[in-house]
Design a protein around this nucleic acid. Structure first.
Lengths: 342, 342
DNA sequence: GTTAGCACTCATTGCGATTGAGTGCTAAAT
DNA sequence: ATTTAGCACTCAATCGCAATGAGTGCTAAC
């Protein structure tokens, strides 16, 4: 659809704008080494590219700026792979060299490294729990009326919840109950716990326990898990380094959105396989219609379980960010898989 | 030191400036109902107050603005207690009505309610772990090489850590070990755990266990707890609502500081009893020399264990914020104490 | 098809005049 | 001895206007 020359010029314009943040004029482009045309020629091509919707003009006597469509074409067709320098690679390796880490820590470090490497805001969605299976249950009484229920999954994740102890339940009874549960529910996926509890265990419990009702109530509390917040941000303030976000109101909208993790989750959706680039207007939420979001999913045993992402201005270093995200997602997948699938 | 009239006028000026955010002129003050003097008289008094350091003038032909010293005097001597309205009280009660909550959830909710009530940034620290005593230890093997160590404190807090299993340690051995620990270390303060482990348990362990060294190593890992991050923020973006923070650079400095929880901790220091007000220049960190921070400590059984705080512009509604913080700190103390000290 | 040249556009900058909120001082009033 | 009215003065903010210059679009020549 676009001639080779148009592609060349579009590429040059986007490239330039990404680094300068200023509308680029025809002369700027014609002076580039990889371009052998006069400014007049460039002007004509620019005019065409604008007509086709790839470029925009802030006002008549200004240079051109890529439109969302322009960036989209750039990302889909023109981008060339970015090579990471030694320093960056070292930082990445550092993360994966950490031997023993909880998933939460990994996620946190990952976010931090992402911001460091890109100077944009990092968003990391943490391994989803869907696939987690029960490894161990504990119920630890604190006093006569309260206890902590603890659930350990096969991935090493620990969930805990403060619960009310029904009247007149003794330590020995709890112990028996916990034993029973560990016997019968090991390897059951977390989301099935309550269901299985009613289907399979309740009968047996009734036979062994006097306070059947109370016990059941206790377990019901324990297994009623809340959706824990699995979004980590790092470098939220980085957006303020961008010249196009010198305006407090714009920044405010974005940062307020970032504070609402549920909205973020909703926006990013379930982790699908691969890389996603959302450019400017393509975003649903108004607050970030001047931003781009790039996400890459990472997986555990081939199944996507989370994503790493970057939020930056539409004028983002797409090539670099994509490379970093791919590296990171791949590394995370390897790390997770080797840690949990043996 | 200040005459009654000077106090009256200073109070009026601070009051006015807090709500208008504009330098206040003599006429504005003289028109107030509680002031019975002409603008000329006010002008003279203002001039004196400026000479004494309580007021400042942005430029010659502008009104006056309170200086740090002025706010300080206002807070120490002029402020009158703020009465909370029905709505606010309901919100506070709502929080304390929550029956079963982990300390972490309480802290999070508290921060949220604080921002809602004040429209400033809320900072909540704590509860500190120093006083937490061991209730229960568990070690749950995940596979041949890894396990999760879980520590439950008498307050219901659960710490967990992924650990390496030394070679050739069996399930039964771990079980024996855990039993021994639970027998001997219950009610020991967390910070003493490692010490006590070496002093008291190691001898006994040596007798009962073949792999003494490996076991010790394992426990050492488990009890080596990191300082967990105990700072919660809410409404960090609220500062952008303030007209004096329409400047991205100022905001950036502040938000970057808020991202560094360690700095915050250091700045706020250990929870001392009572209420602290840090006004403008009194703050050590440059980023917040245009802000005020008010903190109130809450306690468990009389001992301060954490603090609730508000960060806002120097032009803050001191009276209101102080009242809210006092209410909240008191409520939290009651809640914690009744929950854990029976 | 490409480019030189030129008229045209328009955001940005700089400058001087104007405005108005607010002060400081002095002299009159209380 | 205070208090206040009055007036000259200051200075940020605003407006209008001309100058500047980066950049375009178009046309005619190469």
């Amino acid at each position: 659809m676009l001639s080779d020359r148009q592609r060349l010029i579009l590429n040059a314009i986007v490239d330039n704008y990404i680094h300068s943040a200023e509308p680029v004029g025809s002369r700027t482009i014609s002076k580039r080494e990889d371009i052998g045309y006069s400014s007049a020629t460039i002007r004509n091509e620019m005019s065409d590219l604008e007509e086709l919707g790839y470029l925009e003009q802030p006002h008549t006597s200004a240079g051109r700026v890529p439109s969302t469509k322009g960036y989209r074409f750039y990302v889909d067709n023109l981008i060339q792979p970015h090579l990471l320098n030694e320093q960056d690679l070292v930082k990445l390796k550092q993360l994966f060299a950490e031997r023993i880490l909880h998933a939460e820590q990994v996620v946190e470090y990952t976010a931090q490294i992402l911001t460091q490497l890109t100077n944009y805001t990092a968003i990391v969605m943490g391994p989803e729990v869907f696939d987690h299976r029960l490894r161990n249950v504990q119920i630890v009484p604190l006093n006569e009326t309260q206890a902590v229920a603890i659930i350990v999954t096969h991935t090493g994740r620990v969930e805990n919840k403060l619960i009310d102890l029904p009247d007149g339940i003794g330590t020995s009874e709890i112990e028996r109950l916990v034993n029973l549960l560990n016997h019968r529910l090991t390897d059951v996926p977390l989301w099935q716990l309550r269901q299985r509890l009613y289907q399979e265990i309740s009968g047996e419990m009734r036979r062994h326990t006097e306070q059947y009702e109370e016990m059941l109530q206790l377990l019901d509390q324990s297994f009623h898990q809340e959706e824990t917040d699995r979004v980590y941000l790092s470098g939220a303030t980085k957006i303020m380094n961008q010249p196009e976000f010198r305006d407090v109101d714009k920044v405010k909208d974005i940062l307020e959105l970032l504070e609402q993790h549920d909205q973020l989750l909703h926006m990013l959706g379930m982790p699908a396989n691969g890389l996603t680039v959302r450019i400017g207007q393509e975003n649903q939420l108004d607050a970030i219609k001047q931003c781009s979001i790039i996400t890459a999913s990472y997986s555990l045993g081939g199944k996507p379980v989370g994503m790493v992402g970057i939020l930056g201005p539409t004028r983002m270093e797409y090539s670099r960010v994509i490379t970093v995200l791919n590296h990171l997602a791949e590394g995370l997948s390897r790390m997770l898989t080797s840690q949990f699938e043996k």
